[in-house]
């Protein structure tokens, strides 16, 4: 079967996001960008399914600015077979909302007819946690979100999900949407030979208009501010002092 894996270019997760002084957003100019960590897990899962023989082809897709090409090359270097770049914004500060992304992905699914779409559960920039569920809704497919284990068996997948209080296992009929949680796998690093090979793998370039999708936002960003800073308190010399302080505050 074919698997589609959408990936997003986001601020590197080791970089602290800085709010722009004019309150218009987070400064992304000259900041290290990487693949969204949950999407790396999604790419890795698709590769593992291919290595097990459950998947024949992995198509990766990214929707955003032209520079997302680098993110797609990373996915190709990890082991994806081919890539589609959908240019939907010029400015690196423009975030395409999950609903618009899901609409474009739905069109790509129509063309590519994958049996499964594996997505990260959330992007670490807008923290929406929505694209997979929205895509499932638009396609009328079943969804298995926050996956920590995926087993494909014939025309269904058994997915163990991370939920409040523990784990839930469900069976979802294929085609289906899977979104990844942290413990699903540990993504591999691309080797240098594979990075070289990835440069020759096919990468199609499209635009949002090619799919007839209006990407204008439904949520207008009024302002972006720094969160209220928490003041550092005092250092205590030993456990006895700590206990005394906590008793004074009435919390123990």
């Amino acid at each position: 079967m074919k698997v589609l894996v959408p990936v997003k270019r986001v601020i590197d997760y080791n970089v602290k996001a800085r709010v722009k002084a004019d309150g218009s957003g987070v400064d992304l100019a000259n900041v290290k960008m990487s693949m969204n960590p949950f999407d790396e897990i999604a790419v890795e899962e698709a590769i593992r399914l291919k290595e097990k023989g459950a998947v024949e082809e992995i198509v990766v897709v990214s929707i955003g600015v032209k520079q997302a090409q680098e993110t797609l090359r990373t996915a190709l270097a990890m082991g994806a077979d081919r890539a589609i770049l959908v240019v939907a914004a010029d400015d690196v500060h423009t975030d395409i909302e999950p609903l618009a992304v899901a609409k474009i992905l739905a069109k790509i699914v129509e063309e590519e007819a994958p049996k499964m779409v594996i997505l990260g559960k959330q992007a670490i920039d807008n923290d929406m946690n929505a694209t997979g569920q929205m895509l499932a809704a638009l396609l009328g497919w079943g969804q298995a979100t926050f996956a920590s284990e995926v087993v494909v068996e014939g025309e269904a997948a058994n997915v163990t999900r991370e939920v409040d209080g523990g784990l839930q296992t469900i069976e979802v009929k294929l085609p289906a949407i899977v979104t990844t949680d942290l413990r699903l796998n540990e993504p591999r690093y691309a080797s240098l030979p594979n990075i070289m090979k990835a440069k020759k793998k096919p990468l199609d370039e499209k635009t949002a208009a090619d799919y007839g999708v209006d990407v204008s936002p439904r949520l207008e960003v009024v302002k972006t501010t720094e969160p209220e800073a928490r003041q550092a308190g005092e250092m205590v010399p030993d456990v006895d002092t700590l206990i005394a302080k906590l008793k004074e505050k009435g919390v123990v």
Binding site: V26, I124, D125, D127, L219, T224, T225, P227
Partner: peptide, 15 residues
């Protein structure tokens, strides 16, 4: 709503 792991708070107006 918090974005970027709570490093920024975004105010959004829904249309």
């Amino acid at each position: 709503r918090p974005i970027y792991a709570g490093n920024a708070i975004q105010t959004v107006k829904s249309k």
